[in-house]
Simulated scan of single mutants.
Amino acid sequence: MSLTTSHREPLAQEVTGKLRHAISSGLWAVNARIPSEQELMKELGVSRGTLREAIKSLAHAGMLEVLRGDGTYVRATSEIAGATQKLIGRYGNKHVVEVRLALDTQAARLAAHNATAAQKGEMRTLLADRRRAWDTNDTAGWVANDWAFHLAVARASANPLLAELYESFGNVFRTDLEAHSGGQGIGCPQEGHEDLLAAIEARDPDAAFETVAENLNE
């Protein structure tokens, strides 16, 4: 991806958009340090002041964090994710779980109506990978595939706002998965989402809702 500017809009706004795209596209990963000011000034062809204005804007949105004397780090993939992470710190785990229950159950209902054949195939693959991780005691792989399955369900809802909101909770949801994985091997059960996938494949929104609610209540 090129960060070259075109001057078709206010320069600081255009630079902000270029930096935002580098983050949202995955070019710069979450928790990674972005290139130095000198590198970005050269690539973008802009002044230090313009670049800092763009970085300040994304830092205010929670997407970047500037650590004096160290560098600037990616903290969220979108403004909504940055805002969510700031808000989560103000509330207790009970409130986070309640919000997750609302998002997960609605995503499951909508996915049962709207999931495509390709999306269902992706879910089946993720559950197979999740099972293999459980069998081999691969905690990191189990967490990654479990989270990816949840996110796939949210995206299959065909509601892009719901999917983006769900993804914005990614850090806290993954941390919760890691906490429940146990200190000695994977503490969570091998099963977990096969019933949900079966309900989605059967286009049964009520069954999808019930299996998610039961899973989260446990």
Results as ranks from 00 to 15, higher is better:
Asp135Trp: 05
Val99Gly: 07
Arg131Cys: 00
Ala107Asn: 10
Gly82Trp: 02
Arg75Ile: 04
Ala118Glu: 13
Arg100Leu: 12
Arg124Thr: 00
Asn114Arg: 13
Leu67Ile: 15
Arg132Tyr: 01
Gly71Ser: 07
Arg68Gly: 04
Val66His: 09
Arg130Leu: 05
Met123Cys: 06
Ala108Trp: 04
Glu122Leu: 07
Thr136Phe: 01
Trp134Lys: 03
Ala108Leu: 04
Arg90Ala: 15
Leu101Lys: 15
Glu122Ile: 01
Ala81Gln: 10
Leu101Phe: 10
Asp138Lys: 05
Glu79Lys: 07
Arg109Leu: 05
Ala108Gln: 04
Leu87Ser: 12
Val74Lys: 02
Thr136Ile: 00
Arg100Met: 13
Asp104Thr: 05
Gly82Pro: 02
Thr72Pro: 02
Gln85Trp: 06
Arg109Asn: 01
Gly121Phe: 00
Ile80Met: 11
Leu103Met: 13
Lys120Val: 11
Ser78Met: 01
Thr72Glu: 02
Gln119Thr: 05
Arg130Ser: 02
Val96Lys: 09
Gly71Glu: 08
Ala83Gln: 14
Lys86Pro: 01
Leu101Trp: 04
Leu126Met: 00
Gln106His: 06
Arg90Ser: 15
Glu98Pro: 06
Val99Leu: 14
Arg100Pro: 02
Ala133Met: 00
Gly71Val: 07
Val96Pro: 03
Thr136Met: 01
Thr105Gln: 09
Thr105Cys: 09
Asp70Phe: 08
Gly82Arg: 01
Ala76Pro: 03
Ile88Arg: 07
Val99Met: 13
Thr72Trp: 01
Gln119Glu: 13
Ala128Tyr: 00
Asp70Ile: 12
Arg130Gln: 08
Gly69Phe: 02
His95Leu: 14
Thr77Pro: 08
Asp135Ala: 11
Thr125Ile: 05
Ala76Glu: 05
Val66Phe: 00
Ala107Thr: 09
Thr105Ala: 12
Tyr73Asp: 00
Ile80Asn: 03
Thr77His: 13
Thr77Leu: 14
Gly121Ser: 07
Leu67Met: 13
Lys120Gly: 13
Ile88Asn: 11
Gln119Gly: 03
Val97Tyr: 11
Val66Ile: 07
Arg132Ser: 05
Ala107Ser: 15
Asp70Leu: 10
Ala118Asn: 05
Asp104Gln: 11
Asn114Asp: 07
